[in-house]
Computed example of a mutant assay.
Amino acid sequence: MKTQLDNALQFQQTALNLQAQRQQMLASNIANADTPNYKARDIDFRSALKGAIGERSGPLALSGTSERHLTSSDSTAFGAYVGYRRDFQSNVDGNTVNMDVERAAFAENSAHYEASISFINSLLRGMQTAISGQ
């Protein structure tokens, strides 16, 4: 029974993890709005989700032949789908963070995250009702 429940929730769990990592990245962009030469980054959500559920369409991670090889400096599990945001207006200090774009992306991602949580809660409530028979 546990594996059936895990299989039913795997997609939602993957989407929720991706949304949480994207939220951290957007918060980092906002926090570094005044850092010279900081380049705003974002995750291609659609490609990362497709890659995570097995429909690999993007770049693959590099493999190493020795334990002494350097690993990726990106700490996200979806590092292959992280890119730099397009620069809409150049800043004198080389920073590419546009606060309006970042705030909008942050709010949109927050709404998607809350919707995912609500969907998972309703799915679990439905399963609990089905199991208890009430």
Results as ranks from 00 to 15, higher is better:
T3A: 13
T3C: 07
Q4H: 07
L5S: 11
D6Q: 12
N7H: 06
A8C: 11
A8L: 10
Q12E: 14
Q12D: 15
Q12V: 08
L16G: 02
L18P: 02
Q19T: 08
Q21V: 10
R22V: 01
Q24L: 15
Q24H: 13
Q24I: 12
M25T: 13
M25K: 06
S28P: 01
S28F: 01
N29P: 09
I30L: 09
N32I: 03
N32W: 05
D34I: 07
N37E: 06
Y38L: 07
K39E: 14
A40Q: 04
R41H: 08
R41I: 09
D42E: 07
D42R: 06
I43C: 02
F45R: 00
F45C: 05
F45G: 04
S47G: 07
S47A: 09
S47C: 02
A48G: 08
L49F: 02
K50Y: 09
K50E: 12
A52L: 08
A52C: 10
I53Y: 00
R56P: 08
R56I: 02
S57N: 04
P59S: 10
L60Y: 12
A61I: 04
A61E: 03
A61D: 05
L62Q: 12
L62V: 07
T65L: 13
R68L: 11
T71F: 00
T71V: 07
S73E: 11
S75G: 09
T76G: 12
A77T: 08
A77W: 01
A80G: 14
A80T: 05
A80W: 01
Y81S: 13
Y81T: 06
Y81G: 13
V82D: 00
G83R: 06
Y84C: 10
D87N: 08
Q89S: 02
V92S: 12
V92F: 15
V92C: 04
G94D: 02
N95R: 01
V97T: 04
V97N: 09
N98A: 04
N98V: 08
N98I: 10
D100S: 11
V101M: 08
E102A: 12
E102I: 10
R103N: 15
A104T: 13
F106S: 02
F106L: 14
E108K: 01
N109G: 01
S110D: 06
H112N: 14
H112R: 09
A115T: 12
I117E: 13
I117A: 11
I117P: 12
S118A: 11
S118G: 13
F119T: 15
N121R: 13
S122H: 15
L123W: 06
R125I: 08
G126F: 10
M127D: 01
M127G: 07
M127C: 04
M127T: 15
T129S: 10
I131P: 09
I131R: 03
G133P: 12
Q134E: 15
